[in-house]
Design a protein around this nucleic acid. Structure first.
Lengths: 342, 342
DNA sequence: TTGTAGGCGTTATCAA
DNA sequence: TTGATAACGCCTACAA
């Protein structure tokens, strides 16, 4: 590995002092430099192929242009899309992310964020938070710039980007009702998570608004957004909510598990029971039946959360008010829903 | 944000000089320090909650404990698993990765690796390389520690971790042959990629070994590992390779696309045609029919490649010979294969 | 066995 | 408008 060009090399080649070179290369500080000279220095720098040394810069300025990203489970297909959005927004600003997946083990949250802090990340994007999240709360109190993505914490002073659960769930219910369904069950997400709670609340609200009675026994909450939990909840529903003709699931994985469990019980979707999901994750259009689900702009959710964080970082500490962005969600109808059996 | 504890703080609190503190905290250099004193310093350090400043350390030692990872497309479900393996191997060594997805645009490879180099990554893990990869070749010549994952470059001096294509494809063909198939086609991967070329070669080899004639018109190569290309290739096969009863695909996405295209043409898999994939990516077991495919230990491929890179980094420059790890692959039979129609 | 001093590459402050 | 100098936090000869 050849020795890298440093600022000193550029300065020497341009016959100026390093401090002058430093200023000339940073648009923010190049004002005092004679235009002609600045141009010369920049040219020399380019010729030599000079590149700013990231560590030296960070050591001096205490900015790393590094953001930490924590997600619950990278094998959940929604996260690759969110990550893509993040990158799209981060790279043009020359920020880089270090990503950690908790792989379903929330107890790792503290360790992982500690590791990121030890790397002096400028800010954190958290996709793994619970509604009451001790780690997030502590980070906030320590003044770490924070944005949650996909989920919220109850504390309103943490910025967030989510989808419009109220509208998404409303559309799912309205669609089912229009098909003729009246007894509609809900497989809710974990109530520790804002998504689980928000969608359940949306389910109750929309049911009432559509004149659908909600029986408490037609609601069962999953412990995790997994296919297995979807299976379990579907079995429970079948056992205790007879007469149900449709089930709105809080998430695609729950829906996929539910459909599989129904099949194992001899019930065919959509013939016997209609099922909807949430997220429109990749591949659900290829299943048989294709999943009717609430489409969420996952890539935009990612890029928006990065933008929110960059915004925070651009602002001086006192002006860092939290913002809450809600992106539109809308139903996409496929094969897993149809009118109820006669 | 409170001021962080520095080594100087620890030294002051422990009544020693910073150099002593530095030595005491690094197991490699603590030999000269009096055991008792070293212990004391470590205790003080822990009490104060001292953490090494990553940038200062890197600036001084030219090591960042950062590795760059380049993958072709993060929305391809095989990569999240590979990334998980990478993390598993990297985190215990306190290495962190910065990941970039090319999103199918190979021309970004140079920029992305340049960005990573500008961040002074200790090494690179490349999942996106072509067989003749100019970027990889240049990086190698610059002495950058390099490992390719999932794919190889022709240049043998770049370490790689791949699956056993020969055995995987052989098992797929043997299975089809045992079911009674004789006219077996191949949807090959892009021939620019080692996986595409290796699996095609394996297909020819195994066909010969099993006494199956290979008609050249029963082989069509995709331009990318995408569902759409799978569609296109399947249509082409149907048009020109009549009599085919089974098709071995170089990749699951190609297989998924092929099955969809067949259905659009009124051919049902597996009734009319059997199809196999490669990778056993998530969700292919949930499709109808479930995909018979070659299972590849993706997580292990990831962790092994990280281990290979860490190994390189542990070695002094001259001793850095390349290694090529091949992990076992084996067929998992599901619903997409059955005996040919009579 | 411990302390001293210099420097990694950069930016910020102060003089000129 | 430019230059000199110190400092960011750490490691490592070299000296003691």
């Amino acid at each position: 590995m050849k020795k890298r060009i440093t600022l000193k090399d550029v300065a020497r080649a341009a016959n100026v002092h390093v401090s002058t070179a430093s200023r000339a290369l940073d648009p923010n500080t190049s004002h005092p430099i004679r235009d002609e000279l600045a141009l010369h220095i920049r040219r020399v720098s380019a010729e030599l192929g000079y590149e700013l040394n990231a560590e030296a810069y960070s050591l001096r300025t205490r900015r790393t242009r590094l953001v930490g990203v924590v997600i619950p489970d990278i094998t959940d297909p929604v996260y690759p899309l969110i990550l893509r959005g993040l990158e799209n927004a981060l790279l043009p600003r020359r920020f880089v992310s270090i990503v950690a997946s908790l792989d379903g083990d929330m107890s790792r949250e503290a360790d992982v964020t500690a590791l990121m802090r030890s790397r002096n990340v400028d800010g954190l994007i958290l996709g793994s938070v619970e509604r009451e999240d001790v780690v997030a709360t502590k980070l906030l109190s320590q003044g770490v710039p924070l944005v949650t993505v996909g989920r919220r914490v109850e504390n309103e002073s943490v910025s967030s980007v989510t989808s419009d659960h109220v509208e998404g769930i409303r559309q799912a219910l309205a669609h089912l009702r229009a098909l003729g369904h009246r007894a509609i069950a809900h497989i809710a997400g974990p109530q520790k998570l804002s998504t689980g709670a928000d969608r359940l609340k949306a389910f109750r609200g929309a049911s009432a608004a559509l004149g659908l009675g909600v029986s408490e026994r037609a609601i069962v909450a999953a412990d995790a957004y997994s296919i297995d939990e979807g299976r379990r909840c579907a079995r429970e529903l079948v056992a205790r909510a007879t007469g149900t003709t449709a089930v709105v699931c809080a998430n695609d994985r729950l829906a996929v598990g539910a459909i599989a469990a129904l099949r194992e019980l001899g019930l065919e979707c959509p013939r016997d029971l209609s099922v909807t999901g949430y997220n429109d994750m990749p591949m659900v259009d290829l299943l048989s039946p294709g999943l009717t689900t609430v489409h969420v702009p996952l890539v935009e959710i990612g890029s928006e959360s990065a933008r929110l964080l960059l915004d925070l970082l651009d602002r001086p500490e006192p002006e860092r008010e939290a913002r809450h962005v809600v992106l539109p969600a809308s139903l996409v109808v496929r094969g897993s829903t149809r009118p109820p059996p006669p």
